[in-house]
Simulated assay, not measured.
Amino acid sequence: MLVILFNVIWLLNLSLVLLKRQNKVIALFSMIIAIYTFLYNTGSNDYHMYEAIYELKNTSEVEVGFKLLITIARFCGISFGVFQGLIGGICLSINLWIFGNYSKNYNLFFTLYFISQFFTDVNLLRNCIMRTLVLLSFYYLMNSCKTKAIITLLITVTIHRATIFYLIFLLYDVSKDSTFFKMMNIKKRKVLKYAALLAIYICTVNYILGNKWILLRNLAKLYLGNGSGKFDYYFSTTTRFGFLIYFILFGTYFLIIYYSKNKVKKYNMYKFSELTDWIYYINLFVILSFPMMMINLDFHRLANGIYFINIVYFAVLIESSKKNLFYYLWVLVLILCNYLWRLPIVQGWDQKFLILAG
């Protein structure tokens, strides 16, 4: 029943997007279904792992912040199902609140979110928290609250260590050149562009070496810990062509943003100028994670941290477009990009039905 209801709601949201109309009642029903799924999910791949963590049976490699959340929830006598529902409901509320500050098209949000990323969030609670707080920190950054943005990311690191990746971007701060960079007569933004090109070069070399470049593995040891279970897990296998899906996906996102950046500059659209610049450079920064994706597809979670940030920006772009062929092209490309996440080689179609039916 839930599978049918979910698909009907998604089709209604899609229809409203295609008609360029909005309906808050449909959006509200979408949110209720999302929270209900978080609350009663028992069929996702990682459900039993998170349940064991919640019951304190397997917490050896869980970050201290997530342990603290579990401790508070258990102290309050909350069951694991309710804990999932609270995490999902709070994260979704934060995402929609920030989304609403840039666009009121909540039907577009659910159209894209329900294709694939919703199921990732239900399956991976810590990733759900991480992506939400990365968006929140970006929102603070866009509103000239850099201190709040840094504090938010520091808190998030205690829940998911992958957040360090975005903390580095925030501290690097492409918006202004430090004294050192001025003395060296170089621009931070140009350095980031060269670093992205270097990452692409490393991907090429790594593939030639059969995805076994020892340098990448040594760097991973520093991050994951030498001899840790996480290191053994991520490097016990290598990908063959699966990484191409993510390269195509993020490459398409980047091309859309690059095109928009030039359009904003050409037509002096000052309203979107600052937002577009930040979106462009954070997506450029994400390219630095590409070499790790080649070794294990799970490293896509580094880049996936900006999913909600991109959704906010794409909503702004679509709303600024007239209802013409170009508008429908925008929508089609974004829907196809989101469907890439659901290819069997990456996650498997069965997860959708296991989560909804579970």
Rank of each mutant, 00 (worst) to 15 (best):
T158Q: 04
Y166Q: 03
Y280H: 05
G89A: 15
I282K: 05
I245D: 09
L133C: 10
V134C: 15
K176I: 13
T238Y: 12
S144W: 11
I202S: 05
D46S: 03
Q84V: 15
K20N: 03
N13W: 11
L108F: 09
V174L: 05
G81H: 08
F272G: 10
K190N: 09
W97R: 10
G85H: 10
E319S: 08
A195P: 09
S15I: 00
L216T: 03
Y234A: 02
D173N: 01
K323L: 14
I32G: 01
A162F: 00
R131D: 15
M184E: 12
L133M: 15
L2H: 09
F241S: 09
I151R: 07
V64A: 04
W278N: 13
T147Y: 14
Q84Y: 08
N41F: 07
F66P: 06
W341K: 10
L192T: 06
K266N: 11
F299V: 00
D298L: 11
N324H: 03
E63P: 08
V64N: 00
P344H: 00
T120I: 14
F66W: 04
L244N: 00
L28F: 03
F231T: 10
Y139N: 15
A315S: 13
L343A: 07
G81I: 11
R342V: 13
F247I: 13
T163A: 06
F181P: 12
K265V: 04
A303F: 01
I287N: 00
L343S: 03
Y259C: 01
N226P: 11
G210W: 05
A357N: 15
L28T: 02
N310V: 13
Y36G: 00
S289E: 08
K322T: 12
L171R: 05
F299H: 05
N226Q: 06
Y54G: 02
L167V: 09
N45I: 13
R21C: 07
L69E: 08
T276E: 10
K188P: 07
